[in-house]
Amino acid sequence: MTECGARSASWQTCIIDEIVQQTPRIKSFFMRLSTPFAHVAGQHVDIRLTAPDGYVAMRSYSIASSPSSSEVIELAIELLPTGEVSLFFHEIAVVGDEVELRGPLGGHFLWPELASGPILLIGAGSGVVPLMAMIRQRRALAQTVPTALLLSSRTIRDTPFSEELLAVEMADPTFRFSLAVTQEASQRSSDFSRRIDGAMVGDVVSRLPNRPAHVFVCGSNAFVNFATDGALMAGLDPSMIKTERYGG
């Protein structure tokens, strides 16, 4: 009884095809794979950088793109103050550079092939990345499972993919998007201007036709703890909540 997961994935060389600044601290890197693979939305890749003296640095990054376009995958990488790999991507890497990558990896934080009920996605900062792959996969397959995204951000400007998310919401009445901004006033009535709490999760859940059967929460450990405490206070069952915590 194995969920689809990382069985074996060999290292391959990929080329940076395009770089897009998403927010002041997050850039998207479109990586052209030499050996394309099909991933499941929510999975990640490992990236390996090697210095001239043989020193190797490895980090995991979630895939932001939908599995339907697998020759080029999108990674959205946040610049971390002490991050030797994120610093390389933000300040040194240019289009045409080659890096080593392996994947797809991860067998738990996965978009369900057949959802048994509505889906609630909660994220903050670069934690939106695997959720973005899920939303894009849902769109690509024209799935209609009711889905709500609650995204926390300092300001609207700090929110990655916000234009695309607003466009998906406009086009698809079964997708609801709520933004919780913590350092400025919210602009839409469906948004919030405070940190995520139980009342807010309850509010977002009430906009779904029935209670969620799958909950995915991604962000820093502190954020995931706030958000899952909120989800539990809103009466959601802990066994349906999958979390992914950044910062390792």
Binding site: T50, A51, P52, A57, T82, F88, I92, E100
Partner: peptide, 9 residues
């Protein structure tokens, strides 16, 4: 494979 421009901390 050496990564162009990567020194590591």
């Amino acid at each position: 494979m050496v990564t162009r421009g990567f020194a590591g901390r």
